[in-house]
Design a protein around this nucleic acid. Structure first.
Lengths: 206, 206
DNA sequence: TAGATTGTTAATCGATTAACAATC
DNA sequence: TAGATTGTTAATCGATTAACAATC
């Protein structure tokens, strides 16, 4: 019986393990070891074994891990063996690019709908989707049971929009706006901010 | 004389401090405290003081920090008081969206050029830019002294392209491709991978 | 069998927090 | 002055690594 919660920093590494394993599988490999996976990801073998052992015993002494089996297990742990419908909020440049991006399908996520509040954008076609009026979001989200939103509105609108999303039932937000969101702690938030990452790197440049 | 290097995890928080301070400044505030900044960013006041004290004494007992002064200092520390020319590599959906994005200018970065290897894309106009042939990248990068690249090519081409970028003088890569790059340790790499972040969140969802 | 590699424990390392004298 | 807040030290906390018995 596992009483202590898994550290979030461990959870955050699991998707990377899954990604590496999929690439190994694509390359035709069927087994790997903590050592090999660690070299691939630049993570110590001990850490990988320790992380995985939090969830079960997935390997075999002497031979390592069966790749397809470990992929299955990680997908189960991360809840991505099902397909999550996600909503894109904001049909600007970034919203467009995300809707057209093919990388989410077959990885646990399906872009279900895209919303904007600009009358000039509502009704516009993007790939297979039509931009919907943000006023209809509650209906759409509740009908499809959507729990995840990708927020690509301007910084000035992000906080208010995020609060609205939470009010209509969203539980997780991938925030592309360059502002920290202040939301109830039970709502999961991850931020994507290229400027922050660029400034992190320039510290080390001449 | 400060001999021990600053921990990378501290450096990684500085851009967030800078972002928050700029937002405070926009809101008309002129001073703040570690307590207030901490509440804004959900970071402890002690940690903010400790982080900043690694670089100097920027505050005043009793009153806190002068916002414009601290912004200046952080910009200096992060090397973003100058303007860095950056190159976009890959003129797909994402490359397009980034070139059109206005958020980098006045924040230390200027999109200087965009490259692709697809003849159908070379010569295409995006905003104020023309997509250039990747074959010309060495000239362009060395003429402008570009050190930073944003890599938005398909996963299958990312590693080889990254190695080429390093060979022509790139020192820092913001990698949008969903693969870990294996490069010499002196090259800075930051990854942007929405799928990894989504899978991190679904762990916590029902 | 011999070699390889796991899962786990204990040791180490590093990061965060609490506390407080100094002082604006 | 009294209240507030810094910079810093020491204590705590948590994460990473090293080591190794178990065993495939």
């Amino acid at each position: 019986m596992n009483r202590t919660p898994i550290p979030d920093i461990v959870v955050g590494r699991l998707p990377r393990y899954l990604q590496a394993l999929r690439q190994m599988a694509e390359a035709g490999k069927t087994t790997t070891s903590s050592k090999e996976l660690g070299q691939w990801l630049r993570i110590s073998a001990a850490q990988i074994r320790k992380d995985l052992s939090q969830f079960g015993e997935f390997g075999k002494q002497g031979t390592g891990y069966a790749i397809p089996f470990l992929i299955e297990q990680l997908q189960d742990i991360l809840n991505v063996n099902r397909c999550w419908d996600v909503a894109i909020i904001g049909a600007g440049n970034l919203g467009h690019a995300i809707v057209r991006y093919q990388g989410f399908a077959n990885r646990g996520f399906c872009i279900a709908c895209i919303f904007d509040n600009d009358p000039a954008k509502i009704g516009q076609r993007i790939g297979d989707h039509i931009v919907e009026d943000i006023a209809n979001i509650e209906n759409a989200i509740q009908k499809l049971g959507i729990k995840i939103a990708l927020l690509t509105v301007p910084a000035s609108e992000a906080q208010a929009m995020a609060e609205h999303l939470v009010a209509v039932g969203i539980k997780a937000i991938l925030n592309y706006a360059p502002v920290p969101l202040d939301l109830p702690p039970e709502v999961r938030v991850q931020n994507i901010d290229p400027l922050i990452q660029l400034q992190h790197m320039t510290y080390y440049l001449e």
